[in-house]
């Protein structure tokens, strides 16, 4: 047997989990304390205990609307992935396509997409379509940009190596370019996913009769701040679940690249 090269330090999982849990608990306690001490009226800022109660008590209503929001996020984000990654790939391989699509891409990004929401109502009414479209538009850009950066990050020597093996274009994409790009693509997906949640809510503010964004607007109109906060809690939960789903996928697909070493050897720098 050979000697070990590098040993990974044992993970102290109990301590690792304790710190973030404590920090969130402290924040909630502070909130509760401030509201009670200063006697802040409930229509201004409800205490977290009340919010938690309503978030559970109103869960049938919130769940029904959450489903609508979740659908918009899933479809919009899915569309952004299915269209964004192939577009970035084409941009890498075709200079003409790159030059053709680039100005359109930048224009679409600098354009405030919220401004399109009233148009969407005219064109598509108050259904699922305007929500999906808005979510797609907002999630699309970071996915394309990061995929582009990732696909360009391949080392020319790696491609030369593949050519000397008689490798085809398809093989070099599949075996080298795409795996090289994966960490970049996943950072794009993570940003895209958080953007997608924003996109769905914004669309629901303006052009919807269902979803948690719609609940927010309606509850605020009747000064039901507890329900507003309860809906926000649900949104946070949805955001968390989707974000960690992407991160989980990243852990499965991105192998052999640990940031652990740089953290360890960098000693906090």
């Amino acid at each position: 047997m050979q000697t070990e090269v590098k040993k990974k330090p044992p993970a102290k999982s109990s301590v690792r989990w304790l710190v973030p849990v404590l920090s969130i608990l402290a924040l909630l306690l502070l909130w509760e304390g401030v509201v009670r001490l200063l006697n802040i009226p409930i229509y201004m800022l409800p205490p977290p205990s009340k919010v938690a109660h309503v978030a559970v008590a109103e869960s049938p209503l919130l769940f029904r609307h959450a489903l609508s929001t979740i659908w918009a996020i899933l479809l919009g984000f899915g569309l952004a992935v299915v269209i964004g990654i192939p577009i970035a790939t084409l941009m890498i391989y075709s200079d003409a396509f790159n030059r053709a699509i680039y100005p359109i891409l930048i224009t679409a990004q600098v354009l405030p997409k919220v401004a399109l929401a009233p148009l969407f109502i005219v064109w598509f009414g108050f259904g699922l379509i305007p929500k999906v479209l808005m979510t797609f538009l907002i999630a699309f850009f970071p996915i394309v940009v990061d995929t582009l950066a990732g696909l360009s990050a391949v080392r020319p020597e790696s491609l030369m190596l593949l050519r000397s093996m008689g490798g085809s274009r398809w093989q070099s994409f599949w075996k080298v370019r795409l795996p090289t790009a994966l960490p970049h693509i996943f950072s794009g997906l993570k940003i895209g996913m958080t953007f997608a949640v924003v996109g769905a809510i914004v669309a629901e503010f303006v052009a919807s009769e269902a979803g948690l964004g719609y609940v927010l607007v309606e509850a605020r109109a009747s000064l039901n701040m507890v329900l507003v906060f309860a809906a926000i809690i649900w949104l946070i939960a949805i955001g968390f679940i989707f974000y960690f789903a992407v991160e989980y996928a990243e852990r499965i697909f991105v192998k052999g690249r640990s940031t652990k070493r740089s953290q360890e050897l960098g000693a906090g720098l």
Binding site: R155, G166, G167, Q171, K175, P179, V254, G256
Partner: peptide
């Protein structure tokens, strides 16, 4: 070919990097 930098694919183990030759060929 051996380049100045090893040009190993970082998501593949040592053995898998060597066997890339077989996969491509």
């Amino acid at each position: 070919i051996v380049f100045q930098n090893a040009e190993l694919l970082e998501w593949r183990t040592a053995l898998q990097n060597i066997l890339l030759q077989m996969e491509i060929r």
